[in-house]
Structures are given as C-alpha cells and as structure tokens.
Amino acid sequence: MIPGSEKAHQLRVQILAGGISHERDISLKSGRRVADALTDAGAFVVIREPDEHLFAHIAEDKPDVIWPVLHGASGEDGSLRDILTLAAIPFVGATAASARLAWDKAIAKVLVSRAGIQTPPSVTLPKETFRELDAEQVLDQVSKHMTFPVVVKPARSGSAQGVTIVEDATHLSRAMIDAYVYCDVAIIEKFISGTELAISVINEGAGSIALPAVEIEPRHGRFGYDERVVAGEINYYVPARLDHSIVAKSEKLAIKAHEELGLRHLSRIDVIVDEAGVTWFLEANVAPGMTETSLMPQAIQATGASLGQVYLSLAEAARLGRG
C-alpha cells in the first residue's frame, strides 16, 4: 500500500456480533446492517463472533476500532468492554462501568431519577426475596401498594423478552416466573398509558445530540418481541405526532439520561409520554438494535444523513477517544 494514498486512511472496524444471548439473532442482523453501512461509507469491516478466537481475530484483523453490536449479557453488561479496555483497543459505545449500570434497568432508574428525571414508580425484587420470604405475602404487599396494571420485566434483558403487562394481582405470579426465566432480578413497574417514544442519542465527538424521536404505534396494541422483529406490525412516526414542545422536552430528557448514565457514543432512550404530557424514562439501551426495522437507524435517516456516514463518524470518534 502506498503511504498517503486514500486506502492508507481506510478505517478498519471489527464488528462483534452474535454471542450467547437470547438476542443473538437480532445482534447478528444488526451487525450485518452496521457492516454494510460502514462498508458503503468506505470503511474496511470484518464481522466476528465474540468467542475463544477473539484475541486471535483482533491480532489478525488489526482493527482501528471495535464496534460491539452485542445485545444481552456480556455484550451490554460491561464484561466484554472491560476486556477491550484492558487490551487498549478503542471501541464504540459506553465504557464497561457505564454499560454495567445502564444495562441493569433497576440501577438505571435509580441513577436517572437522582438526576431529576421521572421514571415510573417500581419495586425491584430478586428471586431470592420470594424464596426467603413467603411469596404470597410479598405479592400481597406489592398488590396493595401498586396500582394495576403493572409491567413486570427482567432487570437485565432486552427486546421486550420476558415482559408482561399484568392487569390484576391474580396474574402477577405467572408474570414473575416468566421474567425470572431471563434474569434473577425482576422489576414491577407502574404501567404508564401514553405514547411511546424511542430517542436515539449520539455523540460524534462534539457533544451529545438527540436524533428525532420515533413514535411507536403497535398495530395490535402491543410492542413485544414479535412486533419488534416483524415488518408491518408497528407504525413508526418520525417526527412524532406529539406537540413539538413535548417532543423537544423528551429529547432533552433523553440527552440528560444518556449523559447521566455515561453512554458515550450512542444509546437509545425509551420514554413514554402520558396523557398529561409528562415524559417518563423507561429504560436505556446500551447497544440499540440496528436491524432494518430498528429505531436508531430510522432516527438517523430522518435527519437526512446516511447511516454509513453517521456510523463512520461514531467509529472515528471512538478511535480518537472522543465522545
């Protein structure tokens, strides 16, 4: 290669996708989409599994930057990011410590509420609580102090897996069991009726900016796993159909949550706007989906920018230690 030629500056990106998680399928699809867009934008991209060959692949690929497009445990819980930090390889997205905190929905709720962001009242219950105390009495207490419907969800999981909207106390125990299948800690949260917004936040090195909020309108009233992965099941609106001032306020809230949680180059903050126009933080996504029906790519395209250029600038920011 001739020094100084265009090729000499081609950014080398290693995408990590797949992994052993319940969201492996989505991760693989997301990884391929990010790879396609980066390649179109001129980067040299290799997709790898985060497996026992990780270090050999890093030595072979010599990436300038790694992009973990990994969902679920190890991808979002910070462990892999710790390893990449130890290996002194720049990577896109939250640091290990931040990812670890944000990935746990219960901890993320505490952190953002301390920063003055509203999040629905909830109770966090490890599985052991029910084992040590009498489960029936615990559920009775919960039922007495919470207004139904409630949302039961695993504290650490994604893509709405293990999530149940519970209309009354009789269905609470089944929902807890379904959540504990994914994670040993479950959250019971007040159900807020309203308009769901997904707000992607990116930082290309010049500060966090919110991309246009994407409004989510499920065709059949539910935004569960199946609806997320099947084209046609959800209507997405960008810009959202809410009042401009409410959308602007929500986007500001998303930036604040992103920064409080220290999510660096990218995140997706999910909120709900209730009928009174109040925006509630629901959760932060450390490694948002990047498939053809995912929310962050929609938000980027709504700005008129190309996915490839935005991904490339995020990768560059990571390489240069910005963001």
Binding site: E215, A231, G232, Y237
Partner: peptide
C-alpha cells in the same frame, strides 16, 4: 393524517 412507516408497504 400521517401514515407512519411500518416497513412493509405491501401489508
């Protein structure tokens, strides 16, 4: 009324 995008124009 805005129609939104459902990613399947042939639904």
């Amino acid at each position: 009324t805005p129609r939104g995008n459902n990613f399947d124009h042939w639904l």
